[in-house]
């Protein structure tokens, strides 16, 4: 057997505890394989627990360990970095906790915060920087302006008050009231200096951020706001939002 085939078989045996061992392996080798199988599962579940600390606390350690093990069977790791082992876990949780929709929402928020933690560094543009960058802008330039948000910025849609849930889970003892919101919302995640942060958005800001995040220019973003909220509100919100994002340290650069 070539080394490649031997390694493929060994990996299959590590990933699947039910997989048959090579013919002729004695009890000693089987016991050794049990160590590798245990190391694999323990290390990966632990890595996921580190990423999804609050989700684990919310569902309980035993339920979390079962869900993480299930996720690892569905999506065995392929990358060299443990950082991505938990990718897609919120989708797994959405199936496993179909009656508890706050669980995948909380996990999606933790994943976004985890990604923002090691996103590329950027120096946010301040008011003076924006003024300098746009000093020579014509009206057409403003319309064509591309707004680059700091790396790691994403929106997390949810139907629950994730801020209240997040805060509660950071305390020694937490209450479990109904965190459901009256209407769905989007939570904005970004990194402020070295710290990932998040806050709630309203419908107009979520619409505008979604446009910018998919690469729409400022003019197209304004057009979407006008189409949804009318000329006066749409135009006013577009300008106000840009100012708010500058104040939040969300804008890495603007360009024509």
């Amino acid at each position: 057997m070539t080394l490649a085939r031997q390694q493929a078989a060994f990996m299959a045996q590590v990933l699947d505890e039910e997989a048959a061992l090579p013919p002729g392996w004695d009890a000693r080798r089987a016991a050794g394989m049990a160590v590798y199988r245990n190391n694999y599962r323990t290390a990966l579940v632990e890595a996921m627990r580190a990423t999804y600390e609050r989700t684990a606390r919310w569902v309980g350690e035993a339920a979390f360990a079962r869900a993480a093990a299930h996720h690892l069977i569905l999506l065995p790791p392929a990358s060299w970095t443990l950082d991505v082992v938990g990718r897609g876990f919120s989708y797994t949780l959405a199936e496993l906790f179909a009656r508890d929709p706050e669980v995948p929402e909380l996990a999606a928020l933790e994943w976004a915060m985890h990604c923002a933690f090691t996103a590329a560094d950027a120096v946010p543009l301040d008011g003076a920087g924006l003024a300098a960058a746009t000093a020579a802008f014509s009206d057409e330039d403003w319309g064509a302006m591309q707004v680059a948000l700091v790396p790691g910025t994403v929106l997390v849609p949810a139907r629950h008050n994730l801020a209240a849930l997040w805060q509660a889970l950071g305390e020694d003892a937490f209450a479990a009231p109904d965190y459901a919101l009256a209407a769905p919302t989007d939570w904005l995640v970004w990194r402020e200096g070295l710290n990932p942060v998040f806050r709630q958005t309203d419908a107009a800001e979520a619409l505008a951020l979604a446009a910018v995040l998919r690469g729409a220019n400022f003019g197209d973003m304004c057009a979407e706001l006008v189409a949804r909220f009318g000329e006066a509100v749409g135009v006013a919100r577009a300008g106000a939002l840009l100012g708010q994002w500058i104040g939040d340290g969300l804008v890495a650069a603007v360009s024509r």
Binding site: T2, L3, A4, Q6, Q7, A8, F10, M11, V14, L15, Y36, N39, Y40, A43, L44, A47, P76, P77, A78, S79, W80, L82, V85
Partner: peptide, 25 residues
């Protein structure tokens, strides 16, 4: 050691057979 195949990564330090083929690899 080895940690991965073309498809999966174990994130563990897996043992090698000490063969001439493995030494070449």
């Amino acid at each position: 050691c080895w940690t991965r195949t073309s498809a999966h990564n174990s994130h563990d330090l897996l043992p090698l057979p000490y063969t001439r083929e493995a030494l070449d690899v």
